[in-house]
Structures are given as C-alpha cells and as structure tokens.
Design a protein around this nucleic acid. Sequence first.
DNA 1: AATTCAAGAAATGAATGCAAAATAGGTTCT
DNA 2: AGAACCTATTTTGCATTCATTTCTTGAATT
Lengths: 250, 250
Amino acid sequence: MKSAIPETGVPITQPAAGNGSDRQEASLHGEVLLRLRDYVVEGNIPEGARVPERQLCEMLGISRTPLREALKVLAAEGLIELLPNRGARVRQLSQRDLEELFDVMAGLESLAGRLACELITDEEIAAIERLHYEMYGHYLHRDMHGYFQINQQIHESIVAAARNETLKTTYANFAGRIRRVRYSANFARKRQRWGEAMREHEAILDALRRRAASELSDILFQHLRNKRSAAIDHLAEGRDAGLETAPQGD
Amino acid sequence: MKSAIPETGVPITQPAAGNGSDRQEASLHGEVLLRLRDYVVEGNIPEGARVPERQLCEMLGISRTPLREALKVLAAEGLIELLPNRGARVRQLSQRDLEELFDVMAGLESLAGRLACELITDEEIAAIERLHYEMYGHYLHRDMHGYFQINQQIHESIVAAARNETLKTTYANFAGRIRRVRYSANFARKRQRWGEAMREHEAILDALRRRAASELSDILFQHLRNKRSAAIDHLAEGRDAGLETAPQGD
DNA sequence: AATTCAAGAAATGAATGCAAAATAGGTTCT
DNA sequence: AGAACCTATTTTGCATTCATTTCTTGAATT
C-alpha cells in the first residue's frame, strides 16, 4: 500500500498528558490539532503527499469528525491544502510561495524589532547579547547546528521583546510553515554568507542598544532578505538536482 | 428569546451561485465558512454574544458538521473563541488586543510599502495619486464616509503593489478582525487628526514616487500608529460611556 | 424569602451511517 | 499492444445519532 505516513502511531490516550508546553486544549479536536500540526511541521509527511483520513484516524485512535475539523484548521493555516473530494495534501511550496513567506517573516521581524525598541529592558538586551556571544562561539567553531539554534533563539527573543502576543502567534505560524526549508537554508550558508550574517547580527545588537527603531527595522528586514536569498538559491539548486521532496510511494 | 442573532436566515441553496467575488469554494463547508466569516465581520452578532450552533444551522439550512468545521476555522482566525463545552462566542477584543492588532496591521502595511517600492509601476502610482486627489476632495467637503472608503482603497492598493499574495491574505485577515472598530475609529477623527492624516498621505505618495523603501516603511508605520491612537482613544471613551456592544442593526 | 440542590431539558463533542464522488482494476475495442 | 470504457472498491462530504456536559427550572430546606 502507498501509505505516505510512517506508522508512528501513538494513539491519544490522555489528553496532552505530561508534556511541558502549555497546551491547554482539553478537547479531542484541540489535541488532534496540536499533534497533527507538529506532525506536519516536523516533516513526517512528505511534501505533496496525500493524507488519507482513515489512516490518520487509526494512527491517532479517533474518529473522522475531530480529525476533519483539525484538517480544516491546518488548511486555513496554510500547512496543508484540501482538494475537493480528493482529501488533504501537505502543501507543497513553490519557489514563489517561499519568497513570499520569507518576505512576510522579514516584515514581522522587522516590526518586532521596531516595537521592541519601545519597551525592551537593559536586562533583555543583555540576555540577547549573551546569546550573541554564545552564537559567536559556535561560529568560530564552525558548529552550524549550535549556531542555528542560538540564532533562532535570538530572533525569538526579539519577537518576545516586542510584547505583542498577536505578533508572536502570527510569527510562530509563519515560522512553522517554512520550518523545514528554513533549516536546510541555514545549512546552505556558505562561509562568506555566514560571516555576513554575524556582522548583521552585530548591527542588530547595536541598533537595539540604541533603541533605534527605524534603523533596527531596516537591518532586520535586510537580514531576513539575505536569508531568503540563501534559502531560495539552495532550494533551487536542490530542485534542479532533482531531489525535490517528492511524493514518496510511487 | 436569547437569540443574539437576527434571523437574516437565507439558507444556502446554490453554492456561491451568482456572486461576483471569486469565491470558488464548491464544498458546503467552504461556503459556510465564507458566509459565517462575513456575517461575523460585518458585525451581525454582538461582541461577546454566544453563537448557538443549532440556530446557525437552521439559518444556513445545514447540519452541524460543516458548521462546526467552519467555527473551528473562524476560531483559528481569531474572529470567535470556543469555550469548551460552552460553544462559540464572538471574540471580544480588549483594548490591549486592539493595540496589538493595530500594531501588526501597521507592520504589515509598512512591509507592503517597502515591498511595493521594488516593483511598483508608474501607472500604479498614478492610480494611487488619482485616489489621493479624490480623497482630498472628500476631505475638503468633509465627507467622512467617502474619505474613509478611498482611504481604504489606497491602503489596499499599496498592499496589492507589494505583489505578495501571502501578505495580502494575512492583511485581509487582520483587517477583518478589526473592521468594526476601524470603521468607528475613522469616524472618531477629530478635525486636527484628519488634517494630519492627509499630510501623512502626501508623504506616503512622495516616498512611493521616489521608491524610498525604508522611508515609506517608516511613514506607513507611523501613519497606522497614529490611527491606532485615535481608535483606541475613541474606543476607550465609548466603553467608558458604556456603549460597548455594538452596532447591530445598521 | 432566599439559598441550595436536583431532575429535566438543551446544547455540545464525538462516533457512526449513508450517498456521492473518485480511484483502481479489469475488460473490450481498435 | 495500447487506449478507451465500464464496473467494483475505496474515500470523501455531510447528516444523523449517541453520550456528556451544561443550563434551566422548580422544589425543598433553613
């Protein structure tokens, strides 16, 4: 059979039992939504692959009703797409889609920086500085993975400093959509681009210290724009080489 | 007796039959989603009011399954909230929520302006200029309603000029969330603020003509920020005066 | 008279059932 | 042999049904 889905079937026994994150959802639908979202975001289903309801139901140990509700929400979030009478597919992002998503992310981070300048505390800045130096260490050791993680923490700290939950949620949504690509995009960085990124980060910190809102906004946008280029280039190469993440199974 | 919903019950007979907008949704769920979203955005249900499923089902002439799917999506969009075992309520926006939403809108428009500078054509700018002068006419005649409409068209034109469908969709989503407030916020404009807004619009056009991305980004953000202040002030007054829940009827 | 409690009614959350559409498989025709 | 067509199976979309939970209402108690 053509099950595009690995049978990581862990039925929902207790709702959100014992996980650290503050997932409050008590309803089955909410639980399914969270699990499915993670499942898709983490790339467990190949891009463009069909997602048969029945199989997911069995995997999650629920009936189709709450599953279908969750699918509708995920579709609204842009993670999957629903083909009329043909079920759900994991959304396949075209190059243009990625460009658009990266630009929106850039806009959101740019906004976050602007807002952060208004209320950020010296302590928060100090925390970001510490992250920055930690990241610098990873840079020096050419530890790409560590660098990537800290990098993400820095950007998240800036978003958090914006003190805008709506922004944070929206940012998280978009981040989820491009997560896989983002990851590989970071690995795609050439040495040269890596050095650039470090310098940009220093400029970000500098602007943040001075609470220079407009300037920080510009720098962040440009920084993300550069990331976008790297990511798109990388993806284009990958796809040209024929390793598009194809619908496994045929 | 406690039906918060006016019985504007027009059952769904033909799916999206004969409406001009390109609502393609062939599925019942999609149709319900579009109708319900409009219904809520247009303020037909008072803020904070319960949205009984049964009543909506009768109103739309459908069963609960597709309705509940639509409600889940609307909740994900932030238009309504779902209380476990207690049904759906139209989301009531706190002052803080509004501030956050306005700021995110400001960020999105700011981004739109920045992106627009990259590819906008002279014709598009000319079109916006025409709108601007038309709006100026409304301003001179103190025609608030006309002014408001053109104003919105201008902002939408800028978003369109950004050539980013993802941004456009996201923008539309947030615009829907604050639509009611936005409207009354515009009416709240004092003469003085109105004049300011006109000047800001001129600055926007100027920056756009020069394709000055960063500058336009700043101006747009500030412009929306000022709108935000007006709106929040207005709302605060209204709520203090006790007229919180809203327009229903017209 | 007010409060508390309880039983019935109603509404929600989820599962099941049914009709229509799509897919797969085999057959026929060129 | 290959393409087109027709039928059987699967899958989807929606309605209906069932089980809990919440709300209502009325009676009993203090």
